[in-house]
């Protein structure tokens, strides 16, 4: 509990607006308590910048407990930093050493334009979700919840896919800036459940089409997405969704 501290050099991407160019700026930050989270370290740097009369660094964040999916940027080339299965808000400074240089960069993808500094616009994910990422059921129509049985294994597996927080790390980690892991997890979650069956094949085609239209790349199966995913979502969902996609095109005829 006694306060161990470290000193850091930070190279941070600075960009004023979406259209403008950007560049790296270097900052020194001393006396960082190792109990701080990575974002609290940035808060500390921002206080320092305010004192120096400089614009603080903009980064997305909100819940700071790893579930809202707002935060995320590259730390030394790794999405969400070095700790596996962890969003950057849950990464703590005890994982770093004094004297280290950390390079912070926003997600890089055509479908995620940089808005300011480390913050990108991920509305393309909402467009994919709106392209059929739902069951068409109105309030008032639902049968009793126990009227439709769902096996425990199927429910557990559906949950594993549904746990995706839509942070975009999979896209950032992918050399093709592909949104296959995000999109396939959403497709797979509903495809696992009986309630998702009526629209299963239409859904996969629409969501895949939306993904292409938004400017995401395709999958070349390097699996960097799975390694970067803070919720450790498996690439098996990509395989499952692709199978559904082929079936939809060739057999079902969507």
């Amino acid at each position: 509990m006694s306060e161990a501290t470290i000193n850091l050099t930070l190279e941070v991407w600075r960009q004023d607006t979406a259209g403008s160019g950007g560049k790296f700026e270097t900052f020194k930050l001393d006396g960082v308590s190792t109990s701080l989270s990575f974002l609290e370290m940035l808060d500390m740097l921002n206080e320092q910048l305010l004192e120096e009369g400089k614009r603080p660094i903009t980064f997305e964040h909100d819940c700071r407990e790893g579930i809202c999916g707002s935060c995320g940027f590259m730390i030394n080339g790794q999405a969400h930093g070095p700790e596996r299965g962890t969003t950057v808000c849950q990464l703590h400074m005890r994982k770093f050493k004094s004297g280290q240089t950390l390079v912070l960069e926003p997600w890089r993808a055509r479908a995620f334009p940089v808005m300011q500094d480390l913050m990108v616009d991920r509305r393309s994910f909402d467009v994919i979700q709106a392209a059929g990422g739902y069951n068409s059921t109105n309030v008032g129509n639902a049968p009793d919840a126990n009227a439709v049985l769902v096996g425990r294994e199927a429910a557990t597996e559906a949950f594993d896919a549904a746990t995706c927080i839509g942070c975009g790390a999979c896209v950032a980690a992918c050399k093709n800036a592909s949104a296959q892991l995000f999109t396939s997890a959403k497709i797979g979650h509903l495809a696992m459940l009986p309630q998702g069956q009526p629209e299963r094949y239409k859904r996969v085609v629409r969501m895949y089409d939306a993904m292409d239209e938004q400017g995401f790349g395709n999958c070349s199966w390097t699996q960097d997405c799975e390694a970067a995913c803070p919720k450790e979502i498996s690439v098996k969902w990509i395989a499952k969704a692709k199978k559904d996609f082929l079936k939809a095109r060739t057999i079902v005829g969507v």
């Binding site: 639902a142 049968p143 919840a145 429910a155 559906a158 979650h189 309630q195």
Partner: peptide, 12 residues
């Protein structure tokens, strides 16, 4: 009922 119909993966 509504959540189950939407596909909320409740524990089973």
């Amino acid at each position: 009922d509504q959540a189950a119909a939407q596909g909320v993966p409740f524990a089973r």
